[in-house]
Design a protein around this nucleic acid. Structure first.
Lengths: 286, 286
DNA sequence: CACAATTACGAGGGTCGTAAAAATG
DNA sequence: CATTTTTACGACCCTCGTAATTGTG
């Protein structure tokens, strides 16, 4: 029987072009590799190399084997990865969220019901999240819109409204509300990886110059210590992610308000039953 | 390292549902199989079965492994088949032809230049042939139209004209020519697997009732011994595939005449150089 | 002569089968 | 008590590494 090991060896030989080099890379002796490929040739009843006395070179059949082996080995790796992923999902709850704030709402609820599991979260774009949820990479997803698919259970989690956060002395601080387009062309400080919010501001303010910052603490400190315009949200304020000495002016665009939904796979429904219940009651409290 | 053998074992266990049955099917002892799956679980660091004391059942992870293993094993088999096919093509010239007669022209030429190789041929529809040629399943193809693709070398091989073959006493025997549509609705004796000719007559004579016959000798005997209408061609007559005591009336439709081309992959050009030369000169002789 | 592949040979490890144990319906 | 899985144990085969051989640039 052809072995996976042999396929791996063929790949390595193709890469290194000589048995000795391949053997070294594979951490086996060179004669061992020589015999191994001879066995493979025997099993396939085919020559895989053009052999000179002190030189071997893949022939057409050998190259065919390498091509296919590459593919097969990828699939084997995929299998191993899939199994690993599945094992992980027994010990860990990974949340994919399309914005940072809903995670602050969700995590305490998850922690309460799964105190002994590892909780982690990533902010990604919605398509990526849905894909990961379907593949089982994510156990929980937070999306901006309800998913109609029968495969998923979808629960409203929270609402978030964007504010403009300005120093008290700033002229805009007096306004009762403002549109994103009014800020187009300004220079602003912005967090990286805000999920859908990143898309919204880029869309509405194509000419704005953004200074990017990926540390939340650094961002808040900078905001408090400078006169730079920044965004904030009601949830960020509620959860204490707010800069010192700032006035928050509501953003009036409808795109500046979002409802987030907690989405889980139907087959995990029983596992997360209690969490979903609590999300429902806590959402009503908002 | 996960072995192909182990994947095969998982598949068999999934099918037989018990270790004992699977072990028997795999021609190994049952304890050996038990340990083998334990090793696999160790290698994957994952449980693959729900274990009762005297019962095992695939768990979710196990089923995942089985699904993927199935796919991987198919690809391994594909590899082996591909290698086998490639080896065959070194010893054998397999021709895919879209009609039977051109093969009678081609085979003697191939035989002359490759007297020690096995020659075989199949009649198939053109798309299938082109596909097989591209995949390397066919070394030589005979098609009805020239292939423009730069990957192939294309040489006119022969022309063939369809005749209607009738008993001398038949009224149609007196005609100088006839159209296929004139025969629509008649009952005819027809060979199976005529490639494009099958398509042509079905297209032009949708209401004709065909008695199918797949043996050439039986077909010719039947034709000679009955008054049934049958088709013949100039090439069939030239190569001695003709029934006794028949008058051949030319078919006048343009679809009843075909030019066949010999098509080979460019990378085989040198190998078949001499054959191609001879095809060219013999075609001129027609 | 350094380098590459193959062959020879002995050692060691891993997997197998047999046998026995434990558990279940 | 027949069936099934797991554990124990000894045997054997298979592959490995070392060493030697052959051949090349």
């Amino acid at each position: 029987m052809v072995t996976i090991e042999q396929l791996l060896q063929m790949l390595m030989i193709a890469e290194k072009e000589t048995l000795s080099a391949a053997a070294e890379a594979l951490h086996i002796s060179q004669p061992a590799l020589s015999r191994s490929v001879q066995r493979l040739e025997g099993e396939l009843s085919a020559e895989l190399f053009k052999r000179s006395k002190n030189r071997i070179e893949l022939n057409e059949t050998g190259m065919l084997v390498v091509e296919r082996a590459e593919h097969i080995l990828k699939e084997v790796q995929e299998l191993e990865r899939a199994v690993w992923e599945k094992e992980q999902s027994k010990k860990r709850i990974l949340t994919g969220a399309c914005a940072p704030a809903p995670v602050w709402v969700l995590m305490p609820l998850l922690l309460k019901h799964f105190p002994y599991m590892t909780l982690s979260s990533e902010v990604r774009m919605p398509e990526e999240i849905l894909d990961g949820l379907q593949k089982g990479n994510y156990q929980v997803a937070v999306l901006q819109s309800a998913v109609e698919d029968e495969e998923y259970v979808c629960t409203p989690l929270c609402r978030e409204c964007l504010y403009l956060s300005v120093p008290p002395a700033h002229p805009l601080a007096l306004k009762k509300g403002i549109y994103l387009s009014d800020l187009n062309g300004e220079t602003m400080l912005l967090m990286t990886n805000l999920g859908i919010w990143s898309a919204v501001v880029r869309e509405k303010m194509p000419n704005t110059k953004f200074l990017m910052q990926n540390e939340m603490d650094a961002f808040l400190t900078l905001a408090g210590a400078s006169a730079l315009l920044v965004f904030s949200t009601d949830l960020a304020i509620k959860f204490g992610r707010k800069a010192e000495n700032r006035v928050n002016v509501p953003i009036l665009d409808k795109e500046a308000k979002a409802t987030f939904y907690c989405v889980i796979s139907k087959k995990d429904k029983v596992k997360y039953k209690n969490v979903i219940e609590e999300i429902k009651t806590s959402f009503l409290a908002y």
